[in-house]
Write a protein that binds this DNA or RNA. Sequence first.
DNA 1: GCTTGTTAGTTACAAACTTAACTATCAACA
DNA 2: TGTTGATAGTTAAGTTTGTAACTAACAAGC
Lengths: 141, 141
Amino acid sequence: MSHEDFELAGFTPYLLNQAAEAQSLVFSKIYKDRYGMLRTEWRVLFHLGRYGEMTAKEISESAMIHKTKISRAVRDLEVKRFLAREVIETDRRVERLTLRPPGKDAFDYLVRAAADYEDRLAARLGSGEAQLLKRLLKKLG
Amino acid sequence: MSHEDFELAGFTPYLLNQAAEAQSLVFSKIYKDRYGMLRTEWRVLFHLGRYGEMTAKEISESAMIHKTKISRAVRDLEVKRFLAREVIETDRRVERLTLRPPGKDAFDYLVRAAADYEDRLAARLGSGEAQLLKRLLKKLG
DNA sequence: GCTTGTTAGTTACAAACTTAACTATCAACA
DNA sequence: TGTTGATAGTTAAGTTTGTAACTAACAAGC
């Protein structure tokens, strides 16, 4: 490909970023406006709601998010009374994290919103193309 | 979809983010390590290299990047001697931005690297799927 | 028990981004 | 000419992120 022909609009990392930003804007607006949450908080909340009690390290590894971001998200979710921490007696370095009722409510609401969002996207792209897109994205992640 | 079945791994905004981060990591490492540039600087450099002289506002609109980010990127590219600014006499609020030789060299190198990157990605996905992916991403951006 | 090394999580500092003023210039028009 | 409003670009304040230390607790070997 010659220099003169190269366009950002045909460069995959650029297109990925544009699409990711555009799409995450739609969904992040929901947890931001309704609960004042940041993206890492949503991911932590999701893990606890979906998989039950976990430690910060387990979430960090499962979500591939650095432990300092997890630490701050846990602190902010605790301030919101969305989760409870309890030191594990057999290893006092570790905390067991669980959702409290307000956190569970938020989780329920947001999972429903996420599923709705996904449905609308599938309707917009056609379910064949939506599945195809996800398959391709998984290859790149 | 029921609550228990919902997985981040099937949520398109999540997959988009993961893929975008993973891919942009590969390419951003190049302009970061070699030239100490940030993403906005790369995009500004690209616009000037690809389209010739432009004003900050024109780049801002074309790249859909906020003017404060452009302002700082231009400042940092000027410190690197990658571009020159020249006030336009007919409207002294506006600056004409042009690449200097070191900036041109960086542009040439990075465009080549980007094209190589794109080729490798196409080889990895197969050129049919790579084209398909780009088409789908454009729909979402 | 006393090192030495490792691990879970937090804190501190700097870099980067967001948003909202702000400065300088221009254009329109009374 | 002088006032009013718009525009290009910068600066400033607050927020979020990234990286590197740091604390507290554990584990293994002596």
